[in-house]
Design a protein around this nucleic acid. Structure first.
Length: 312
DNA sequence: AATTATAGCAACCGCCTGAGC
DNA sequence: TGCTCAGGCGGTTGCTATAAT
């Protein structure tokens, strides 16, 4: 049986979100910040369960989300992180700041699995199976599989190196990173009416509410990084909102902004929620970069060994 | 033009974890 | 120390758009 679903209450709406609901949710979060999701339906009047609200925010409404096609680099990164981490989509997503775990998961299931299958017709589904799971298939052309993966990991290292150096540059500059290229589709591009409806809302400059002690907000160490005046002075992107209005969203100075905190979340996640992967991969990368290509690194590890590094 | 098959993705479900009491 | 519950996560479902017949 297990635990009853949190949303068994009668009158809880399911299914696709309407633009109006989106606006209500965004407005509420703009004022109160994400977190304390249980209070969201009560305080907004949304007939949605708290989980649904959180999911809608994190997967769709949250600023800084890039939608649309994945780049080659992102694709490679996902493939190789998946090989290293398995189906830990949240951890993988922490290396792709503009993508949500759901997006990455969907992309993996719909595109990359097939792609890898094509590349390795003999390997069946094991091509997309995490390293630790693949370890159970030693009998299936193990040598060939590992050789290919080693080659792929080399490519991934390059991609990861590029990605990380970009991240580092972003962090160093601390001026608001343009997380979304100007021509990148935003969440609102698929729901233009949301941005239209939000225009009015944006005309009255939103304020960052005084900080409540929501647990989830408190959990985010990114709050520290993001609450300084440097970031507060910066403008953030709110999907189409900030680009479609002359008055960009501007957090109140000295008040940490939840929107920006969310943007920083990935940085903190790399250091907190998934520290071993980042530190390990970073060390691995930078060691390798500093050593040249010599030495014994992950590439030379048997895949099963590499995956064990991430075992709990 | 109508029907069927397939792909893509948003959202849901249920389990797990950890904070608070 | 054990219990409760909110939030997080990964797997899965189901709806919609598009392609193929």
């Amino acid at each position: 049986m297990g635990r009853p679903p949190c949303c068994e209450k009668e009158g809880v709406k399911k299914g696709p979100w309407t633009p109006e609901e989106d606006i209500i949710l965004v407005s509420y979060i703009q004022e109160h910040g994400p977190g304390n999701w249980r209070a969201v339906p009560t305080n907004t009047g949304l007939m949605r369960c708290s989980k649904s609200c959180r999911l809608r925010w994190t997967n769709y409404l949250r600023p800084g989300i890039k939608r649309g096609n994945f780049t080659d680099q992102e694709e490679k990164l996902i493939i190789h992180l998946q090989a290293l981490l398995g189906n830990r989509w949240a951890a993988i997503a922490s290396y792709l700041p503009e993508r949500t775990d759901n997006d990455i998961k969907n992309y993996w299931n719909t595109h990359l699995k097939k792609k890898l299958k094509k590349l390795q017709p003999g390997a069946d589904d094991t091509a997309g199976v995490p390293a630790n799971a693949a370890a159970h298939h030693h009998s299936i052309s193990k040598g060939q599989w590992e050789r290919r993966l080693q080659t792929d990991i080399h490519m991934a290292k390059q991609a990861l190196s590029d990605a990380l150096s970009l991240d580092k540059m972003k962090m160093e500059s601390q001026t608001l990173p343009p997380l979304r290229p100007a021509n990148t589709p935003t969440y609102a591009s698929s729901t233009e009416n949301i941005s239209r409806l939000l225009e009015n809302w944006m005309k009255s400059p939103p304020k960052c509410a005084s900080r409540e002690s929501s647990r989830s907000a408190g959990q985010r160490s990114a709050g520290n990084m993001c609450s300084d005046s440097t970031t507060a002075e910066s403008t953030t992107t709110m999907g189409k909102i900030s680009t479609s209005n002359d008055t960009p969203f501007r957090p109140v100075k000295s008040e940490p902004c939840y929107f920006w905190q969310e943007e920083c979340k990935v940085i903190s996640m790399a250091g907190a929620a998934a520290p071993p992967p980042l530190s390990f991969i970073e060390n691995w990368l930078f060691d390798d970069l500093s050593m040249g290509n010599g030495g014994e690194d992950l590439v030379d590890l048997p895949l099963s060994d590499a995956s064990e590094l991430f075992q709990d």
